[in-house]
Design a protein around this nucleic acid. Sequence first.
DNA 1: TAGGCCATCTGGTCCT
DNA 2: AGGACCAGATGGCCTA
Length: 241
Amino acid sequence: MENRVNLKHCVEQMVNVDGDESDSSQESCYSTSTRCKQGIQKGLSNLKRKMAECVDEAELQDLRLKINSRERRRMHDLNSALDGLREVMPYANGPSVRKLSKIATLLLAKNYILMLNSSLDEMKKLVSDVYQTHPIRTRAPPAHLQPPHAPQFSPSLPSVSNVPTVSGASHVHCRDLETIHTVVSKDSSSHMTSLVTPHERHMFTSRWPVPCACSNCMIDSMRISYPKYPPSLPTAPTFHK
DNA sequence: TAGGCCATCTGGTCCT
DNA sequence: AGGACCAGATGGCCTA
């Protein structure tokens, strides 16, 4: 926090710089920020004007605290929203499981939405096929009786309840899971039980290249979406307590 | 110990 | 004018 020194002094310097462009004292405060320099060249910003008006040190301090508090609250709200997102993700939610990082949460959410959309399309196609195969015996319900939303059941969808909870694992990949999961599907239970991991189930049952929601597949997508970030991407996401 | 992730502070910019 | 949003900087904590 070396640069957080003497607010009053900095503001005074800013004002001086605006009054006299040849003043080199701006370098002491803003040598690290080109954006600040650009702002100085444009003239007094609202904030600078406001802070310059605060002749009293205590008044200036109060203003700073107020702004800091607002920003803190804004970031807390953002984090709360991210927590809410984590809760509905098809991933371990147990108390002993480390939290997904922010970037991992967002990318997993994106993949999950893609997966849900594809599952929905697949379901629509299956329903359409059924009605075409048995046009007489199976008749579509009247339009006014049809539900407004897509059916909730999807045999190929690794829903929140389907995806296993792995406690205490810092690096989780669907291929690494040793637990045998019994897929609750009346139509395909015979062969589905032999697929031991969610990843295998996913790859077996997905008709299209739907992204798998497991952490490692998600990281693969991170590499595609963010070729430059992070500079040295781990092979699996890290988790926090 | 290096690197990743995070919270916080800070000033600029934009919007209402 | 005030607040929201954004990005840069910094330091702390944790893990491999």
